[in-house]
Design a protein around this nucleic acid. Structure first.
Lengths: 219, 219
DNA sequence: ACCTGAACACCGTTCAAGT
DNA sequence: ACCTGAACACCGTTCAAGT
């Protein structure tokens, strides 16, 4: 590999994303990235302050991939569509959700995305109060991912499940349901949309009954 | 500190939990833990296979702190109570949720806990099919935590929010609501229970209408 | 202005050796 | 059986120096 181009922030971030796509976030190190760019580790520090700031920059690029909101639709399909688009971006870069989990403050691009989702909800008639709780309830799901407790596809050496018959039965229910899917695992996309729709339907119901957490005080 | 006791797995795990409670999971290293136990780093490897297995052991201890299920109640309050008890355990050890996020497979104690929650749902009349989707929809929330996108209390140097007016409005809604809370932050416990109840109510509705994801085929 | 080289203060984990 | 010491192959980041 010939060092043709001068280093710059954009080239560093793109190379970092590509590398993370390949080897995963855990394996991504400043030294490995420098090696990939055919440069000494310290050269990177001219363009990113440190590793945390590198990851922030990578995330900002990924989040910018999320489709812009479509033309005027109802709030529920509009939010649904944006979240499913965010999910597609996260699936293109499997390390991104873990990176977001690691960060403590949202990056500017994430703030812009959240701002737009909140805007859709408010324009759809949800009160500021309800919207606030709705955003908390969505949590990371608003960015298209959730924390799964078990990764069912990866049953390399499944532990003995006989002490946990209920878990086994539930796993069986999934396997039976998805004969079509190789390996009989869960349909993650279905599970994601299932939970999302339970939440969105719940929010709609609360909106329709003018739910609020601030009690109205008389007198 | 005098080395009075022989090392054993239990003592290693307890010291590791105590240390993580103090300095956080990020700062916990095999070397630091060894130092705390007044022992050379390699001595630990006689009692835990490696760092991952150490963290698994720590998690198993925390999860065992979760209250056992109370006597025969309706499935909804019973599940709710277990999840809120799990949440209390997680709040006692703030590093635990991050540790669970890092693991790829559930520990035995987590499996046992999940098994018991699934058992409550099944005994309450939810089908295996619905219960499967319900468990996915709960995700990490079943263990009492969720991935928040912003940590609102920690506004040490808040970025300029004028480009994100909707985010600002929502944050204001929270601040206005919680005059009582110092700093005007969100009431995390309220947010957690809000989302949990939206989900549980949604699940109950699906149960009552005999919802299933497997289409019934005629003929 | 941008890149380099050496060094610092750490990691997790191996191996062979001690008691 | 349990603990030790030295070493290996890594980290992120500093600093002073090069061009």
């Amino acid at each position: 590999m010939v060092k043709t181009l001068r280093l710059n922030r954009d080239r560093v971030l793109r190379a970092a994303i590509e590398l993370a796509d390949e080897i995963g976030l855990e394996q991504l190190s400043m030294r490995r990235l420098a090696q990939e760019l055919d440069v000494v580790p310290m050269a990177l520090y001219k363009h990113v302050a440190n590793k945390d700031e590198l990851i922030d920059g990578m995330l900002d690029m990924i989040v910018t991939e999320i489709d812009p909101p479509g033309p005027g639709a109802e709030w529920k399909p509009a939010v649904r569509q944006r979240i499913l688009s965010a999910r597609r971006a996260m699936l293109r870069h499997r390390w991104a959700s873990r990176a977001i989990e690691m960060r403590q403050a949202p990056t500017p691009a994430i703030l812009a995305y959240l701002n737009s989702v909140i805007g859709i909800l408010r324009a759809g008639g949800l009160s500021a109060n309800l919207t606030h709780h709705v955003m908390h309830a969505l949590g990371s799901r608003v960015l298209g991912f959730t924390q799964e407790l078990y990764t069912p596809g990866d049953a390399r050496e499944a532990p003995d499940m006989t002490p946990f018959p209920h878990v086994l039965e539930i796993a069986m229910a999934a396997a039976h349901e998805n004969d079509s899917i190789v390996g009989g695992g869960c349909d993650d996309q279905f599970e994601f949309e299932f939970a999302l729709d339970v939440l969105l339907d719940g929010f709609e119901r609360l909106k329709d009954q003018n739910w609020t957490s601030t009690p109205i005080r008389y007198g």
